[in-house]
């Protein structure tokens, strides 16, 4: 009996033992994998942040080299007020970004309406060409516009840069606003019209409040893309306009101890400004949603 019982239960026990073992090791592997996943994710955040943190650290350091460390100072920050060209570069970049983003927003919002509300010939072609400015490599768009501008008599200048960036910003507005309009419930508009509102009133009271955040997001995207663009501006900004990116690139390629200190400070201030702006924006709106739809190139 005993042997029989043993005979019959032992394998079962063994199996369950094996099973528990396997389950245990399986769970261990699972949990290891799970922890590994989170550790890897954390590592990636470090990868994203480490170089930026080093800039921030060095902006407070005496010497632009990490080692040997020579102590902290605020002198680098005091130094940048007297930095020739920096102020006018910031002003130039702000002006270019603002003007071109306004143009891009007006054009982009109008074309979003066209794309979502009307059927017309060549609609798909129109849409494709509305997206191309953000896909075509910056160096090619810049070179193409430079040759074209020179031939039609527009010298590389502030104006040429605004035109270029307004084209570059268009797809971002177009994508964000038209996506919003696609999900917009048009019956709301119909109801308003049925109640006697004219198209302008309907737009003002019904449509605009709904799509306004998308318009704002589109504007901001176009603005940021213009502000941080180097390569397009390189070809069309000419020698008299010096946007911030050109100014910084000059400092980077003419690396010297003083230049590196200035660069670290300016870069830190940019990171700081973005950090604040982003925190405010995320507090108010769905930044992630807009970002996901427009991730594309910027060089």
């Amino acid at each position: 009996m005993a042997t029989e019982r043993g005979g019959s239960t032992e394998p079962a026990e063994q199996t369950s033992q094996e099973y528990t073992d396997r389950l245990f090791s399986h769970q261990r592997i699972e949990s290891l994998l799970g922890n590994g996943l989170y550790a890897f994710a954390a590592l990636m955040l470090v990868f994203l942040w480490l170089p930026l943190l080093i800039i921030v650290f060095l902006s407070f350091a005496q010497s632009p080299n990490l080692l040997p460390f020579e102590g902290f100072t605020l002198g680098n920050y005091q130094g940048i007020t007297g930095e020739p060209g920096l102020r006018s570069s910031v002003v130039a970049s702000f002006s270019i970004a603002t003007l071109s983003a306004i143009i891009a927003t007006v054009l982009g919002v109008l074309s979003s309406f066209a794309l979502t509300r009307y059927q017309f010939p060549l609609r798909e072609v129109y849409r494709t060409f509305g997206i191309i400015p953000m896909i075509v490599p910056g160096v090619i768009l810049g070179v193409g516009l430079r040759f074209y501008f020179l031939t039609v008599g527009i010298d590389p200048s502030f104006f040429a840069t605004v035109l270029t960036h307004s084209l570059y910003g268009l797809p971002f507005v177009l994508l964000i606003v038209s996506a919003r309009l696609y999900t917009f419930d048009e019956s709301l508009e119909e109801a308003a019209r049925d109640l006697g509102a004219d198209p302008l009133t309907t737009f003002r009271d019904i449509t605009f409040p709904v799509i306004a955040p998308a318009i704002g997001a589109g504007f901001l995207f176009a603005w940021v893309r213009s502000f941080e663009d180097y390569i397009r501006a390189l070809f069309v900004s000419g020698v008299t306009t010096d946007p911030l990116t050109q100014w910084m690139f000059g400092k980077i390629t003419k690396a010297s101890a003083e230049n590196l200190n200035v660069l670290n400070v300016v870069s830190t201030l940019i990171v700081l400004a973005i950090a604040i702006a982003l925190a405010v924006a995320m507090n108010y709106g769905n930044v992630t949603g807009y970002v996901a739809g427009t991730g594309d190139e910027e060089e």
Partner: peptide, 14 residues
């Protein structure tokens, strides 16, 4: 998102 919005040039410089 912060690095995402930070100027491309700054990140290359880093």
């Amino acid at each position: 998102l912060l690095p995402f919005f930070t100027m491309y040039l700054v990140r290359a410089y880093s």
